[in-house]
Design a protein around this nucleic acid. Sequence first.
DNA 1: CTATATTTGCTAACAGTGTTAGGAAAAATG
DNA 2: CATTTTTCCTAACACTGTTAGCAAATATAG
Lengths: 199, 199
Amino acid sequence: MGIAERRLRQKDEVRSSILSTAWQMVKQEGWQSLSIRKIADAIEYSVPVIYDHFENKEAILMEFAKEGFHLLSKKIQLAKGKYSDPAEQLKTVANAYWNFALKNKEYYQLMYGLGMPGCEIEKCFAERADFRNLVMEPIEAIIAKSRNSGANPCLKYYTFWSILHGLISIKNMRNWDVSDGLNKLVMDDAIEGFIKNLG
Amino acid sequence: MGIAERRLRQKDEVRSSILSTAWQMVKQEGWQSLSIRKIADAIEYSVPVIYDHFENKEAILMEFAKEGFHLLSKKIQLAKGKYSDPAEQLKTVANAYWNFALKNKEYYQLMYGLGMPGCEIEKCFAERADFRNLVMEPIEAIIAKSRNSGANPCLKYYTFWSILHGLISIKNMRNWDVSDGLNKLVMDDAIEGFIKNLG
DNA sequence: CTATATTTGCTAACAGTGTTAGGAAAAATG
DNA sequence: CATTTTTCCTAACACTGTTAGCAAATATAG
């Protein structure tokens, strides 16, 4: 009964080609110009075939969003593993987040709806929680170690993320007039301040 | 020769009705569902009339974006005027920014392209510079007063703005699960930390 | 091997979107 | 009153996402 399996395999190949074609387009021309019809054209199938694999356009975006969140978590985890001191961990996590956002502009835009009709991020709840847990741990460690033990870790996590997200959103605004070097300085400065304020 | 004037006045009335109708729609259904055709329907003119007043849809959005930037600057200026101590000024400016963003979600989304095809913010350069100058002044004052006089005001301004923008972008994400009270705490905490780190 | 059932993938349409060409009606000017 | 100018509409173009319905290819059963 290899027939059914071959069919599944073939169907999966079409699915993959939809995704890879879409991704290629996004990399070349941005999310704005991604269209179902263009994908269909590129994979040499008719339009409705795409709807056999994805409920709608949003579902395709969601796929990429999840991919983005997973990639981000992986990068963060990897970076965090390089240190055991929580303050160092936080710094390297900030750096990893920064690098992820700059090297994967398209992912970041989609994940947080920057300059585009954002995908429904609420559905990526699980994926976002991973990141949250990774960041929360060193924050809790620093608070515990310090005399400032009244601090709310959740609140601090939120602040940490906001600083990063704010910097990146602003940096990625079109025609932004600040040099890359200064941007990095700003981030380092802000994170430094955050950690100091934490301990 | 009051005829030409009356005509200009009438033309302006149409222009205004386009804008006010559009704004009403945005308030009711969000930017996503704003369309030239719907505006035309509502003002009881045909579609091309709109193009006699605005080059394209983007131009209409730009109008609102500028309005938003002006309103923001006004709010900031007003808040700042209530104090003379630069640290107090910064705190109240942060509050004003926060309030503006929460009370004018639609403006904020448009101004910074949150969850929508952002308007070309680069064209609002002048408007953004106003805000920048307003915020930069107290930052420079604090730096000058402190022994930490090596700090770069531009960098610090950028950090300040990033914190605010990050908090607000995250807060405005759909289905966000953090209470309003906590959000405000996070902001106060972050700004407090920023100012402490500044002086 | 044929007949039936199923899956697959197409054409063509629907209901929208922004934008514009061209012409008809209305108004102002001579 | 005739002519020019302005105003404004109809209708189209080129897109978008989405889906109904049907034809062709394939697999299954007799």
